[in-house]
Simulated scan of single mutants.
Amino acid sequence: MTTPPNTTKAAAFRGIWPALLTPLNADLSIDHTRLAIHCKSLLARGCPGVTSFGTTGEGPSFSMTERKEAIEKLIGNGILASQIMVSTSCAALPETLELTQHAVKLGVHGCLMLPPFFLKGVSDQGVIDSYRYVIDRMGEDLPKLKLYLYHIPQVTGVGLSHQVIRALKQQYPDTILGIKDSACTTAHSVGLAEAFMKDLTVYVGFEPDLPEMGRRGSTGAISGLANFMPRLVSRLVTQPDAPTTASERERVIQLIDLLGAYSLMPALKGIMAMLSGDPTWLRVRAPLVALSAEEFKSLERTILAFGINPDRD
């Protein structure tokens, strides 16, 4: 059954907020200049905002100091705070709290937050208590916090059950605005939409599911592929029944299948290096390993054959 779009959640984000790749200097520090240039390019191509330090952005590989400085420099380099979503997820709750307070004080649109992801097999109550730890300590900044729950259990080993989502929304109805579901399972995303879309916006990170979720009221996405094909990703969710949607969805599936031969984040950075002609995009932080010269040449041949059109995609 199709759920009509919820028109009461004006505060929740709309459109495509790319899950930013993080460019690095030779010493593997963050390249703030390239990051700002990349953000401005995406905003110029129609993205309402960008998302920093999520899974695609290697977020947990950077320290609190680095992550704070990066957001401050993005704003200093001309990106509006309201155009930035920050993943403030850390394994240690006090660090998640500190990053969230910092982001909210800067005036960012919102914060994307994982459950703590070091300990596994924790109970629903433990997950609820973890979010409560952060939210209840926001103090005077709580009314400004827009929080998006982030479900990606294949990476974290800790998921967000319906019970957790329902309890948090009931306790913090003005704070919890949405859910990012990156479990990459259509049935799971549809189940979230059927259970919560009337009260929350459910977004998916798996691009082939965007048309189905768009029909069910989803209004946008935080997408890794949107680093280099933001217009196509936007069309999938905002125009789910357009004549071109089926073929564009199949094109995205083909690209994801092609990338399956590589480690995902290094491959996404490889595409950026190829499209920009800038090999510095190949750099990643451990534990990720950059593409070898042979792997990059193979990826380049694959992507050239596939074809990415910056003016259309």
Rank of each mutant, 00 (worst) to 15 (best):
M197C: 06
S123W: 12
G224C: 08
T185Y: 05
K169G: 07
I128N: 12
I179S: 03
C184M: 06
C184D: 13
I222G: 00
I128E: 03
V134P: 15
A221S: 11
T201D: 12
I176D: 14
L149K: 13
G178M: 08
C184Y: 15
G205D: 09
I128D: 04
G157N: 08
Y131L: 02
Y133F: 15
P173V: 04
N227G: 01
Q125A: 02
K144T: 07
P211Y: 00
L225T: 11
F196W: 00
D241C: 07
K198A: 12
R137V: 00
G178I: 02
Q163L: 10
K146V: 03
V155L: 08
S161R: 13
L232D: 03
S247G: 02
L192Q: 07
M229R: 06
Y148F: 15
D181G: 00
Q239C: 05
S223A: 14
M213R: 00
R132N: 08
H188D: 11
G191P: 03
I165E: 01
G178D: 07
L177H: 15
L232P: 11
K180W: 14
L225C: 11
P243K: 01
R231I: 03
V204N: 14
G214Y: 11
D209C: 09
L232A: 10
I222H: 03
V134C: 14
L200K: 08
E207I: 01
I179C: 06
G126E: 02
G126L: 04
G139R: 10
G159W: 10
H162R: 13
L225K: 12
H162G: 10
Q170R: 14
V237P: 06
P230C: 08
S189V: 02
K144C: 02
G220W: 14
E212A: 03
G157C: 01
L160V: 14
L232V: 07
E194M: 11
R231Q: 12
L142G: 00
T201L: 09
E194Y: 12
V127W: 00
L145F: 08
G178A: 01
Q163C: 13
F196H: 04
R249E: 02
E212W: 11
P243C: 05
L168Y: 07
E212Y: 09
R216S: 01
L210F: 09
Q171T: 14
D136Q: 14
K146A: 10
I135W: 12
